[in-house]
Amino acid sequence: MSGVTLNTSEMLGLSLCLLVLLYVIYNRRTLLGGNYAFITYGFFCVVGSFFLTNLEEFFLEDLINIMEHSLSAAGAMYVAVGCRRILLGSADESRDTL
């Protein structure tokens, strides 16, 4: 493990993500309900990508790197879907607006 170098900003980013994750868990009823769930899923993907960014320094760099970028792309997709459903409306909107 002597050749492992951890990026400070990536570690800090992961720490921040974990703090926000605690907030999400505490408010899970709201943040995992309805259309907001997609944004939360996007956040989970981002947390996963930060985790893998740090993990790839230790082993299976190529594979984990692919997984990290996959999670980032999935996160972007969830955020896009979440934005569409929250801002442009969806089938679930009737509950929110009635």
Partner: peptide, 29 residues
Amino acid sequence: NLISFLDLLGILFLAYALWIVLQPPVRQK
């Protein structure tokens, strides 16, 4: 390569999200 493709995919999704927030009606929300 695969990684570049994934990055491009992510950017396309985000570009779509950006297009959504640029729609005038959503600014009221």
